[in-house]
């Protein structure tokens, strides 16, 4: 018997019992094909990773509108900028570290500063990339994308949200960076969930603690909330899938309601979701905040589930952070 107060209709009531894991990048690939069918201005670019990022699905259907740019991420971002200037809606994909890191200045200068309508959908974000190790993992991408003026930054929590976020990114006029993963994520949302850029979502209601999470950590936070409930602590779990623009109202409202906060992300505790939340709360409503995330280190090789344990990103780690935050408000 779960003592959670999962948000009805939009959150799968049995998500903790039946995780139903699905790949976010599959949802991206199929949604991109749908957009391509609807709008001939949708084009896709990749840097020799199309089978991994799933832009291969678009390439198979629309070969004339797909550009494999080879191993040249900087040129891919610049070319995407030019395509956008020419009226196209380019989706550019590669692994998150190469998209955000290798081509950061191209994203800044050619895309964001020019306010061009480029959608960067980066897969293999975080540490759950696994065995490939730190060169292919990224715990920095959210920080370095969030700092770019005018960038919209989205980290979907599951495959359902990914499909809806890709459609929303298509409808938005302006640059978007979306971080997906290699690993499959349990499915949190039902098809009735409505994704809105810039809006957080309460997925579980609670009074004693607010947990702000993104990506896989939303599911882990729900698992944590169940454990906390057994300890007599009711946790509000909030999915902050848009890191920028941030849903400040919901963050402040949740902090006022609970007066203790945990942030959870598959990213460095520096500059990502934790950074974003504390920037808001330190000015608007200071409360104890505990951050769950990678503690200023590179990743390492291993299986995804081993790495989540190694870097203390498991539900139990969120529980401990929650207990600390609640203790600090006394």
């Amino acid at each position: 018997m779960s003592s959670l107060k999962l948000t009805p209709r939009i959150v799968r009531g049995d998500c903790l019992e039946k995780p139903d894991p699905k790949a976010l990048r599959d949802a991206y690939g199929s949604t991109l094909v749908k957009l391509g069918e609807k709008d001939r201005n949708v084009v896709a670019l990749d840097a020799d990773l199309s089978s991994s990022t799933r832009t291969s699905m678009f390439a198979a259907k629309f070969p004339d509108r797909f550009f494999n740019m080879g191993l040249a991420e900087q040129n891919m971002m610049g070319t995407a900028a030019g395509l956008a200037k020419g009226g196209k809606i380019p989706f550019a994909s590669t692994f998150a570290i190469f998209a955000s890191g290798r081509a950061w200045e191209q994203i800044r200068q050619s895309i964001a500063y020019s306010r061009l309508n480029v959608k960067i959908v980066a897969t293999h974000g975080g540490i759950t990339v696994g065995e490939d190790g730190p060169s292919h993992q990224t715990v920095e991408d959210l920080a370095i994308m969030r700092v770019i003026p005018g960038m919209t930054l989205i980290v979907p929590a599951d495959a359902v949200e990914t499909g809806k976020a890709v459609e929303a990114a298509y409808r938005l006029q302006g640059p978007v960076f979306m971080r997906l993963t290699r690993a499959k994520f349990p499915t949190v949302f039902t098809d009735d969930y409505e994704f809105q850029i810039g809006k957080g979502t309460v997925v579980n209601e609670g009074e004693d603690l607010a947990i702000f999470a993104c990506g896989l950590m939303v599911y882990h936070s729900l698992q944590a909330a169940r454990i906390l409930a057994e300890k007599g602590i009711s946790a509000r779990v909030v999915n902050i899938s848009t890191l920028k623009p941030l849903d400040k109202d919901l963050i402040v409202e949740s902090a006022k309601k609970t007066r203790a906060v945990v942030t959870a992300e598959e990213h460095s505790i520096i500059g990502g979701l934790g950074g974003a939340v504390t920037e808001v709360l330190s000015a608007a409503f200071p409360v104890p905040v505990e951050m769950v995330g990678v503690k200023d280190s590179f990743g390492t090789s291993g299986k995804a589930e081993e790495l989540l344990k190694y870097f203390q990103l498991e539900p139990g780690d969120i529980v401990n952070a929650g207990l600390r935050a609640v203790e600090r408000k006394k």
Binding site: M77, A81, L83, K85, G86, S110
Partner: peptide, 9 residues
């Protein structure tokens, strides 16, 4: 690169 993108568009 941007000119290339424009040319492709």
């Amino acid at each position: 690169s941007m000119a290339l993108g424009l040319a492709l568009a």
